[in-house]
Simulated assay, not measured.
Amino acid sequence: MAMVKSKARGSRIFNFCNILFFALIMIVCILPVWHVFCASFSNASWVMNQRGLIWYIKDFTLNGYQLVFNDNSIWTGYLNTFIYVIGTTVLGMFLTVMAAYALSRKDFIWANPLMLIISFTMLFSGGIVTLYILVTQTLNMYDSRWALILPNCMSAFYLILVRTAMQNVPDSLEESAMLDGAGRFTILFQIMLPLIKATLATVILYYVIGNWNSWFNAMIYIRSEDKKPLQLILKELLVDTNSSSNANVDISVLASGESGDAVLYKQLMKYCTIMVSTVPMFIFYPFIQKYFESGVMIGAIKG
């Protein structure tokens, strides 16, 4: 009896420490978002004079958002980002699913050697210089939208997740379908994919978030202003704000007469742009979140 009570007490202590630990992590993750949110709606001069975290909104204003929505480059960046995200996700999911299905079949004799080669790329790669030469010279995709889509549409990690999930589907289902005259594509799209939808939703989430937040490849390959994604525009805005004293901001579009120069509004615009670029992910994530945990576990553990 005493041992049972001791285990129960230990379990409660563990649960309490666990909850406390993850609550602290949650607070650490939320605080930067709250800081940016409050700053984006506050007076530009007041924000500039603050040190440390901003805990509340001071002199509520929409001037920063008015500047953002009157900046055509923001809208162009949004459109480009959606093109890159949708293109990479659709093409990447198609290639990942087709490759994973082929590599998960026991009757495919080259499955293990190919998986060994694919897994090797997760540990060793040719490096960024080799990739740059491949994209710009061999494939001739410099300053092309394809330079941000094709190199990102296949990931060895995502392939392994989907392949493992397909291997967990009982072989009897495929054998029964073949006896009924079903072909490979019928088995894949009508049997396999519905059974591993949690893993597919997780991989889609990875693709979307990874490409939505990506700016480094665009900085390397894209030079045309009308092809830059939103995150690269945001990065340039942050660099300009921190390094330039003569930021080019047209404050004539403001309806109210808040005092301050262009640099103040550039700072305010920085916070507002971060919020605007983050909102789509806040909207998208809840629809996929329920599949996330089960999708990762199904794709990570075989048996």
Rank of each mutant, 00 (worst) to 15 (best):
M3I: 11
M3C: 01
M3Y: 04
K7L: 14
A8Y: 00
I19W: 00
I19S: 05
L20F: 07
P32Y: 02
V33M: 14
H35S: 14
V36M: 14
A39Y: 05
I54Q: 10
N63V: 05
Y65I: 15
N70F: 01
D71P: 00
N72H: 07
S73M: 00
I74N: 00
T76D: 10
G77W: 00
L79G: 05
N80R: 12
F82L: 15
T88F: 05
A100S: 15
Y101W: 13
A102H: 05
K106T: 08
I109F: 10
A111V: 09
M115K: 10
M115N: 14
I118L: 13
F120W: 07
F124H: 02
F124R: 09
V129G: 03
T130M: 07
T130G: 12
I133Y: 09
Q137T: 09
T138G: 06
L139I: 07
M141E: 08
M141Y: 02
Y142S: 13
D143T: 12
I149Y: 04
C153W: 08
I160S: 05
R163A: 10
Q167F: 01
N168E: 04
D171Q: 07
D180K: 11
A182L: 03
P194S: 01
I196V: 13
K197D: 10
A198F: 01
V208W: 06
N211M: 12
S214I: 04
N217T: 14
I222L: 15
S224W: 04
D226Q: 12
K228Y: 05
P229G: 13
P229W: 10
L238S: 13
N242T: 09
N242P: 00
N248E: 09
L254Y: 07
S259G: 03
G260P: 02
G260N: 06
A262E: 15
L264Q: 10
M269A: 03
T273R: 01
I274F: 02
M275L: 11
V276C: 06
V276N: 03
V279K: 05
P286H: 12
F287K: 00
Y291I: 03
E293A: 12
V296A: 00
G299C: 08
I301W: 03
